[in-house]
Design a protein around this nucleic acid. Sequence first.
DNA 1: CTGAAAGCGCTTACAG
DNA 2: CTGAAAGCGCTTACAG
Lengths: 359, 359
Amino acid sequence: MARKTTQAPSPSRARDPRTASAAQPARRRSGGRVTLADVARIAQVSTMTVSRALKDPSRVLPDARARIDAAIEQLGYIPNQAARTLASARSKLIGVLVPSLSNAVFVETLAGAQDCIGAAGYQLLIGNTGYAPAQQAELLGAYLSHAPAGFLVAGIDGSRAVRTRLAAAGVPLVHMFDLAAQNEWSVGFSQRSAGFAVGAHLLERGYRRPGFIAAQLDPRTMQRRAGFRRALSAAGLRDDVEVLTKEPSSVALGSRLLAELLANTPDCDAVFCCNDDLALGALFECQRAGIAVPRELAIAGFNDLPFAACSTPSITTVATPRYQVGFDAASLLLRILDGDAPDTRRVDLGFELVAREST
Amino acid sequence: MARKTTQAPSPSRARDPRTASAAQPARRRSGGRVTLADVARIAQVSTMTVSRALKDPSRVLPDARARIDAAIEQLGYIPNQAARTLASARSKLIGVLVPSLSNAVFVETLAGAQDCIGAAGYQLLIGNTGYAPAQQAELLGAYLSHAPAGFLVAGIDGSRAVRTRLAAAGVPLVHMFDLAAQNEWSVGFSQRSAGFAVGAHLLERGYRRPGFIAAQLDPRTMQRRAGFRRALSAAGLRDDVEVLTKEPSSVALGSRLLAELLANTPDCDAVFCCNDDLALGALFECQRAGIAVPRELAIAGFNDLPFAACSTPSITTVATPRYQVGFDAASLLLRILDGDAPDTRRVDLGFELVAREST
DNA sequence: CTGAAAGCGCTTACAG
DNA sequence: CTGAAAGCGCTTACAG
């Protein structure tokens, strides 16, 4: 197949098809890379036909298709994304904005999104907003210069002004984790219900004086808190036993916050940590202080990070569908881009309370 | 400034400058977005001058520059990256390939790279190779279609064929974590020396029967192992007390591997875990089995992830400059792109053994 | 310091 | 099903 026939007028042409045009243009900037036109020439069709074969092979006759495939293979042709984007005014890039990368939750969400879009030939443009709403708007604007096909955004912090710009540019946006208003696309679950579930679980286990510790205090954390407090107050218990800080979350911080909580409220018998890192730190603090978990103090976390299942004791937590949030949000975005948008704009993936030894 | 003068021939033109050209071209595909030409028209200069002002303001007279800035502001002009890339044959994208995203180490490396290149207007195109050398080559090839300015790659798994293609395309590549051969760019540290340091530390503490547990078994892990074994054999001790598995690393796996190690070698008095996740799992396993750490068994990890400092007991480990690896590798890449490449191609950032309670 | 022309490599929008 | 023409929005390479 790749063997040259003796009919070939000039063997050297096969190596660099561009020399085929006898009259070289005066100024040529091409870096010698293989283009669609090269493929078209070898395959003896027009560039349009090659372009079609690439996009949708069924729109080209089998015969031409075979010659094109062979030419692509022979030349090692790689499509130029910039040219595609410029001509079509839309790239194969999808902007994803997450509030943090040090939080394993969002990393898994990115993995889910990546796994979903990879097959469709898209790439992720990942932006870290650092939990700053202003930064979110900033990045959305900046990414627009890449003509992204769409956006995936954790949280609903975006200013209205930016969303208007996106709408004007015709770039769809899917919210992740939060459930947005009916007229916007979103994939997530109710943070509030999840918080409520933890409160209800602790009450059911018989704890009467649960506390709450939290860091970062981003919107989702505050929603979990609201649900948790609701569960307590509905049962006639105090719902204000808590230690909050805007500091970034970490295991070490969990130890500090728990120490502070116990100093403030010695008769506290359970604690809901707004995430598993904090819960792990709280557990370490108990081990250090010789407090038996759960006999003297119960600990509940949030997210079900891998270590929660195998710590000693294992940690009760809420399993959140973070990978699925990323995957499904991306999947929804692809459907929207294909003009195959579903009717329901809000997708509630739910959550699951996982009761373990720590409560 | 933004106020319109009564001299303006037609206020409506200011809103959509493109209507200024009386004769509309027959076919116009522009989506109504603002272009360089629009800015040039408003500022009353050529597009070239606007282009220059954007790239290097000092090459344009202050007077023109002021009009251009005003026009950009007024129109809300955003440069089209695709057009830039197509015309210049080089994008503002940098490909980064890491073997895993579930490993916090690489996520921090990405953060470092991101922080470095963000100011220079570059974006990261992040690829996950899943520890598969073939996948690394695959992604390098695929990313070429985006005409990246350069590559940052964790590990030196890339096949020679791919690197030849990159060289041919003039796209520089900087290795991260491993120290490459003298003729290639790399920023990292000696994994082997780090492994040796852990072995030496355990011997110095008086442990005589250290074991080793490891997962994934990627090249870097194996280099650490080699250094560790060297330290033991040099002291005349057995260096083959180990449990290895190709499974992905996790905290739960650390528990399992330790249990297996102790089952095989009951008189083992210390264990070097190839990373901190495994070490944490080992610690949990000891707590579960009632084994006192470090009195009955010493535990050492690798990387110094945040939790290592605050567990009970705290974990001895090797602090690796992962954020710095990402930052400095990106910084090196930018220098190369600016034609300001340093003489030394290998940058050794070193490591630090952090002795804590677990040994 | 500034500008007119050509080109980058594709796709859109029409035709046939 | 296939193709010739025009255009996407910038930058390169020359001139002046």
